[in-house]
Design a protein around this nucleic acid. Structure first.
Lengths: 125, 125
DNA sequence: CCGTATTAATTACTTTTAGTAAGAGACCAC
DNA sequence: GTGGTCTCTTACTAAAAGTAATTAATACGG
């Protein structure tokens, strides 16, 4: 926790910073399937609140991973899609997915479910 | 946000649940290099507090990713290492690492540093 | 002896982040 | 006008993370 030290940036940490918060990864995972409206994401990304969805999308846009397109209609229509940088996360998401699937098989779904619903977040969908 | 719905577990979400919190990933990244004492981790995982390190290690142990071995000495010696399941995360960490490195090259280090030190966490090391 | 150093935690407290729920604006169909 | 749709905001609460001080046990220097 020392300050004013020479630091080198750890690439792994960058990825974590960009994706931090479970929601971002799940949002990108959904967007990998194709362009989505805000409403679709809210339905598909199980458990995300409107606030966190908006906030996550804003940050992802700022990081250049997600593109936002507003259609001047009423009711409003906003479409989200992945940029090239966003799409470059496909193999990352795939590996996360594969490891999770492997872990379930190893440990039995019930065991994993216990862990998911313990002190920590209940991520499902 | 509906309740009492039939749910299927998303493998990607499982991975996120197991690794959630930047510290766990950075801790595992360090342990991939070999067995470590608590003290080593505190030095190598830049910025982690004793509390978060202890807490993260406890959860990782509970999830079967990390093994903890205590030597009855004074001052105490506790060694941490990865289990087989923990080691199976190597490709995951590698992909995170690779993507982060690619992102830096794409965006220029200064730009990335800005993002890392904005509203969100300052992960370096 | 007595104070100091060491290691792996823990505890109390503060700050930050996430979650919940309600509302706002803009227009159209009825 | 009343209700409905859609994308956000805002105000508030709960949970998680960060900070800093403290502990237990003992060896070691002087």
């Amino acid at each position: 926790m020392k300050k004013n030290e020479p630091m080198t940036i750890c690439p792994c940490a960058i990825t974590i910073a960009m994706l931090s918060s479970k929601w971002k990864i799940l949002i990108i995972r959904e967007l990998l399937k194709g362009t989505c409206r805000y409403r679709d994401l809210r339905e598909q990304v199980f458990g995300v609140s409107q606030k966190m969805l908006t906030q996550s999308l804003k940050e992802l846009e700022a990081d250049g991973l997600v593109a936002r397109r507003v259609y001047p209609e009423v009711p409003p229509r906003v479409e989200y899609s992945l940029t090239d940088d966003g799409n470059s996360l496909r193999p990352v998401i795939q590996v996360l997915d594969a490891w999770g699937a492997h872990y379930v098989v190893e440990k039995e779904p019930d065991y994993v479910a216990t862990r998911l619903t313990s002190t920590r977040q209940k991520i499902v969908g």
